[in-house]
C-alpha cells in the first residue's frame, strides 16, 4: 500500500483496508515511541508545524513523533509572530513553507483549510484540525486505542457521551467506526445529540445505533465509553450552557456494575466529565490514548514520506 506524498486531510479519504494498514504500522512504532528502541528513519527530514490555534497534545505528539524518528521540526505554536498578522494568505504561507520542509502539519481555525493547503503544497499536508471540521489523526489514534485494548474494533458496544453535536472528534470517529461495524450508542441531552446526517450515514453502513440521554441506561453493557467535554464556547448564552453543563460526570460510583474490561476514553482536555478518582481504575485509557498519538503520527509521517 503506497501512501507516499499523500495528504491526510479527512478520514473520509481512507478505506477500511488503508486504516487497518496505518494502525498496523503504528503498532510497530510503539517501542520507538516509548523510547525503548531508537530509529533514525526520518533523519534529514524536516516537519513544519503550523498551529494557528492552540494545541497541547497534537503539536507535542507530532514533534515527538518526528524527533523519535530522527527528523527535525520548524514551525510556530502561535501565529501572532508570523506574517499571518500582516494579512498573508494561508496559500502564500503554504507555498513558502513548502520550500522549507518535507511535510507540513496544519491546525487552522477555518474549516477546509487543510484541503486548501494541500492544493498549494507539493509536500504532503497533514490536517491537525480545521475548525469544527476534520481531525483525522485524532480519529486514527482513537481507533488504534480501541483496537489495542480490545484486540479488534468490530463487535464492540461503543457509547459516546457528552457534546455530540459540536464535538468534531465524535463525528469523525463515528464515521470511521461505521467501516468496522461496532454498535454505537449516543448519549447526550436533547440539544446536543449527534447530528442527523451522522446518524443517517452510520445507519446506512449497517451500524446498529441507539440514542438516549441517561448514561446509566447504557454504561453497564458498554465495551468502550468515549467521553467529550461540553464546550462552553459553543453556546450562544450562559443560561443555555448551564442547562447542560456538568450533566455527565463519571465517578467510581457509576462504574460499580460495568464490565471488567470497559475502557473509558476522552480526547482531552477534560473539565469535570471524568473525576480524577477514575484515573486510578483499570478502565481509564485517556492518557494511554493521548500517548497513542505518537506511534500513530510516527507511522503517518513515515508513510507519507515514503520511508520504510
Amino acid at each position: 500500500m503506497n501512501f507516499k506524498s499523500r495528504n491526510i486531510v479527512s478520514i473520509w479519504d481512507f478505506t477500511k483496508d488503508e486504516v487497518e494498514f496505518i494502525l498496523d504500522s503504528a503498532e510497530e512504532m510503539v517501542p520507538i515511541a516509548r523510547g525503548e528502541e531508537t530509529n533514525t528513519a526520518l533523519s534529514g527530514k524536516i516537519l513544519a508545524t503550523l498551529f494557528y490555534e492552540p494545541s497541547t497534545r497534537t503539536r507535542f505528539s507530532f514533534e515527538s513523533a518526528m524527533k523519535r524518528l530522527g527528523g527535525s521540526t520548524v514551525g510556530f505554536a502561535d501565529p501572532s509572530g508570523t506574517s499571518f498578522k500582516k494579512g498573508e494568505t494561508l496559500a502564500d504561507t503554504i507555498k513558502m513553507v513548502d520550500a522549507y520542509s518535507d511535510v507540513i502539519v496544519l491546525r487552522h481555525p477555518q474549516e477546509g483549510s487543510a484541503r486548501l493547503a494541500a492544493e498549494f503544497s507539493s509536500k504532503p499536508v497533514i490536517n491537525a484540525g480545521d475548525g469544527a471540521g476534520q481531525h483525522p489523526t485524532q480519529t486514527l489514534l482513537d481507533l488504534f486505542t480501541i483496537r489495542q485494548a480490545k484486540g479488534k474494533i468490530e463487535g464492540n458496544k461503543i457509547v459516546f457521551v457528552g457534546d455530540l453535536k459540536y464535538g468534531r472528534t465524535v463525528h469523525s470517529l463515528a464515521y470511521a467506526l461505521s467501516m468496522f461495524g461496532p454498535e454505537l450508542n449516543f448519549v447526550a441531552p436533547e440539544t446536543l445529540q449527534m447530528p442527523k446526517e451522522v446518524v443517517e450515514h452510520v445507519t446506512a453502513c449497517d451500524t446498529k445505533v441507539c440514542s438516549g440521554n441517561k448514561l446509566e441506561d447504557f454504561i453497564n453493557d458498554a465495551d468502550v465509553v468515549y467521553v467529550t467535554r461540553i464546550q462552553k464556547e459553543r453556546f450562544p448564552d450562559e443560561a443555555e450552557y448551564q442547562k447542560v453543563a456538568h450533566i455527565y460526570q463519571i465517578k467510581n460510583t457509576l462504574l460499580q456494575n460495568v464490565k471488567d474490561d470497559l475502557i473509558i476514553m476522552h480526547p482531552l482536555p477534560r473539565v469535570d466529565e471524568i473525576a480524577p478518582e477514575v484515573d486510578k481504575t483499570p478502565h481509564a485509557r485517556y492518557f494511554e490514548q493521548a500517548f497513542n498519538g505518537i506511534p500513530v503520527r510516527m507511522a503517518l509521517l513515515k508513510l507519507v514520506l515514503g520511508v520504510s
Binding site: 494568505t89 494561508l90 496559500a91 474549516e111 477546509g112 486548501l116
Partner: peptide, 11 residues
C-alpha cells in the same frame, strides 16, 4: 461562513 473558501484566499 467559516469555510476557508469564504476568506481572502486565491481559490
Amino acid at each position: 461562513p467559516n469555510c476557508i473558501s469564504n476568506k481572502s484566499e486565491p481559490v
